[in-house]
Design a protein around this nucleic acid. Structure first.
Lengths: 120, 120
DNA sequence: CCGCATCCCGTACGATACTG
DNA sequence: CAGTATCGTACGGGATGCGG
């Protein structure tokens, strides 16, 4: 067990604002983390995201994108043209989340190495 | 936008094993991250975890603990005595996740600073 | 004290069809 | 192309009671 000194128990009182729970809530949603991941690479159009995440239906994708916008993690640019063109990208806050995504990915890779999983 | 060079598009093909999706799935569950957080501080008894997360009912807590055990993130020690005593702690793999938790917490604190939230 | 079994409910998610 | 609307289902998660 590692040192406990620098591991404050921030959530002891449930009424306090708890960073861990906040983050947990922000990224709760089947496609939120994948969406953020793909947007961390480059800005994407709606159809691109659909193509990248075939399991996500349009409705769900749209819903989670809107939630991420409301949470200030991503932004949306609508080009006024026909056919329509929309681009999603990370907001400034979302950009700061890429470091978290990198850590998650790295950890995930190690995890996979240890427990060879078949199911994605 | 930051450099894209080192941001591989690991999930392009949905059949591949994707670290991001794996992690996303592992921590999906309302109390998983808080559980891991509390266990990163010290080993905990079941009743302690209940006390720390008043919103989580016994059933749900038990279920998510078992899932974390199945995913090799935590371990359980049962003391053969009456009244029963059980202790949960991070596994070796779980220990390696504490660095992720720290990053999540730090990011969460910054997020809260930026968008003063009321709801926990 | 631990925690499973059961019941119940809300909602997250997926599929499909339709609109600008 | 980029959604919204609607519907049906599955699952997550809360409450309670019992049993070890």
């Amino acid at each position: 067990m590692q040192e406990l000194v620098n591991r404050p128990s921030v959530c002891e009182q449930s009424r306090e604002i708890c960073p861990i729970k906040i983050v947990s809530k922000l990224i709760s949603g089947k496609w939120k983390i994948p969406i953020l991941w793909y947007l961390s690479q480059e800005k994407r159009r709606f159809s691109e995201l659909q193509r990248l995440m075939p399991g996500a239906s349009k409705g769900v994708l749209s819903k989670q994108l809107n939630e991420l916008i409301n949470d200030h993690l991503i932004e949306k640019i609508v080009y006024d043209q026909t056919p329509p063109k929309v681009e999603y990208s990370l907001s400034k806050t979302g950009e700061s989340f890429t470091s978290v995504l990198d850590v998650l990915k790295d950890w995930g890779e190690e995890y996979i190495k240890e427990y060879q999983q078949i199911k994605p």
